[in-house]
Design a binder for these strands. Structure first.
Lengths: 224, 224
DNA sequence: CCGGATCCGTAACGATACTG
DNA sequence: CAGTATCGTTACGGATCCGG
């Protein structure tokens, strides 16, 4: 079909030729926490049409960023996953997330969708390996209708969607409370904790959340 | 006015709301090596229309990513520069460049534009601070019709466009030879060197260029 | 019901012509 | 040189439809 290209012999331009179009990096973000089915992806990308999602998946598959997989039994259903090249985009996605946390993310605006998965991915970039060096724990988070787990081992963290096999602690709550727990802020609505609740108190110390900064311009236009 | 937004409470999505549109990150890339005039930007972004460039600059200025500056005398001409928030995008641009160097950049294809500035920016991300710890030198590069300089001091590198004030060595050559010199490959056409030419031999050791990897898909579609 | 394919109105982009 | 104006083309967004 022949797509649009910047036609520059430049690494950044070539990267953007592949992942620079609308929705593409957000689609990759969805897959960075594990394989997803078509419908899951649609749910995580509200506003994206089915046709466009199918086209993006097709293109990214051709480009070797994404591959079709079959989820293990008993699901046995087709899904999409990142390849090694796709997983390597994590650094770029997290760099954008870091910038966004510092320079672009204020309070949640009315009408903005929130999914726990966004925060779960951000946990990777805010993770402080040193302060987690002596911790070995598996957390399971049930946020609204989403389930994630985070395994902290040897100063590393893995955040994946879906339930954990043997969680040390399970936390069920809503999205706002989840964010408050991660930041060590006082929680308003509380959470249902099952298992070793002392692990919960250690959570905020594991992350260095960037401090939000103001960009210069005083008047910022509205989105639609 | 009111632009298009993903409407997600997610750092990555907010970042892409601002810098995710076509040309925007390449425009930022241009400014990361110093202020540029409108015409310079157009020259570095072949294929971008004047109207679109003007619109992007206006939006990024409103968003506090870019600001208008007046170049110092004797130029005294209006130009654009990144603000602190714009400069902070360097990490994201370089992350994309790293990914692109590894997974998306093959040999230069016919019809692809090359500008030395792309490589000069990539020098920042390939720079190896340890192996440059004992080096203190200012390089000036005159590649085709572009002039850049790189100052290496205390294990850090600054790459800026325009001539250096007091270069230790000046290298004039073409784009392909420039890339060969940086990688320590044998050069075909040679270069004109003025000043301390021994500094040139140290250059390749200062950079760790990522090794190109193949993505899985065998058949990749053509661009247009 | 899930996973798409098709169709169509709208917004974004690209090229060029034009103005201060 | 630094943009604005215009217009044809492409990409996107939403809805509907279809096969397993």
């Amino acid at each position: 079909m022949s797509r649009r290209s910047y036609r520059q012999y430049c690494a950044t331009a070539h990267a953007l030729d592949i992942v620079g179009e609308r929705w593409t990096l957000l689609l990759v973000r969805e897959l960075l926490t594990g394989p997803r089915r078509f419908g899951d992806l649609l749910a995580g990308l509200p506003g994206m049409g089915t046709g466009l999602l199918a086209a993006r998946l097709k293109f990214l598959t051709e480009e070797g960023i994404v591959e079709q997989v079959t989820l293990p039994a008993p699901a046995n259903t087709p899904a999409y996953a990142v390849t090694e090249a796709g997983a390597a985009l994590e650094a770029a996605v997290l760099a954008l997330a870091d910038w966004g946390m510092t320079w672009a993310l204020d309070e949640r605006e009315p009408g903005e969708v929130f999914r726990a998965g966004w925060t779960v991915l951000a946990m990777r970039s805010a993770f402080n390996a040193e302060r987690a060096a002596d911790l070995r724990a598996v957390y399971e988070f049930r946020i609204d209708d989403e389930v994630f787990h985070a395994a902290v081992v040897d100063g590393a963290i893995a955040t994946v969607h879906g339930p954990a096999q043997r969680p040390d602690v399970v936390v069920a709550t809503d999205g706002d409370t989840f964010r408050q727990i991660l930041r060590g802020e006082p929680t308003t609505r509380g959470a249902t904790v099952t298992g070793d609740s002392s692990l919960l108190a250690r959570l905020p110390a594991l992350f260095d959340w960037p401090e939000a900064r103001e960009r210069v311009s005083p008047a910022r236009p509205r989105w639609r």
